[in-house]
Amino acid sequence: MTGHAGILRHAIQRLLGVIPTLLVLVTIAFFLIRVAPGGPFDAEKALPAEIQANLNVKYHLDEPLVQQYLRYLGQILTFDFGPSFQYKDWTVNELIGEGFPVSLTVGGLAMLLAFVVGTVIGVTAALRQNTAVDYGSMGFAMLGISIPNFVIAPLLILLFAVFLGWLPAGGWDWSLNRMVLPVITLALPVIAYVARLTRGSMIEVLHSNFIRTARAKGLPERAVILQHALKPALLPVISFMGPATAGLITGSVIVERIYAIPGLGSYFVQGALNRDYTLVMGVVIFYGLLIILLNFTVDMLYAWLNPKIRYDEKR
């Protein structure tokens, strides 16, 4: 294929752009925590000086800040986030290993649900523009955007767990019926955004000249929509996947707390309240990395789907 060299160059350029972003991320996280008043061990009561010193040596808290920073950077390069300050026998890597699969499952399912349902609603509304279907689904979408997930969640629990008793109110055992409510809660605002976005871009595409050409060719409406309109209409939706992931990760903090799910978000909030420096930094960097990588992937996908970028980069 003609475009591969172009995509490769595009990919390398983007990857190079990721490095400073990562560096800034790590730096901010590190120094923010270090300038924080109150270390991890002076929270409860003053420890004997010897023990404090031992701890400091163990966690390198006695070294100059710059040295600590460089040491931390080195560790990050090997994906080693160090030991947790609070969970004594755990490393941050192990904690992430515990929590992330849970968060990924809920988040991944929510993402899937959101993009499938969102695009279907959006396309339907666009094809029935200015009808009751359109107004209804867009009003619903606006509601989805406006209701915070920490409002939705208790309401869903109230309805499906307390009143109807169909689903458990919370907890986690990897069973599907414990995933239903968290996934829906997490997906709802994303469904709403995706639906609005899809509708808007679909309407724009349907007004474009090349759609008129496709109709002039006598193609059935189905073919006009599926083969000519759908792909360009979905491009903005694909580039929304990056921000959507960031939103889902943020939302997971709330959702995991409300539904008592032992995911990474729960660890993060707990770590933040306990001043567990290494854990909090680890999670921030881990999620930052995830978002950056996902943005990169989406970027590549976008470039691959858009022949024009393929071509421009080739020159």
Partner: peptide, 26 residues
């Protein structure tokens, strides 16, 4: 549906702006 048997087959139309009248994604 009936019109589609004529459009493109019996009666074809080409447009003013060739830059935007072709689908850029295909």
């Amino acid at each position: 549906g009936e019109l589609n048997q004529y459009r493109g087959a019996k009666i074809a139309m080409i447009f003013q702006d060739p830059m935007t009248s072709l689908n850029p994604y295909l």
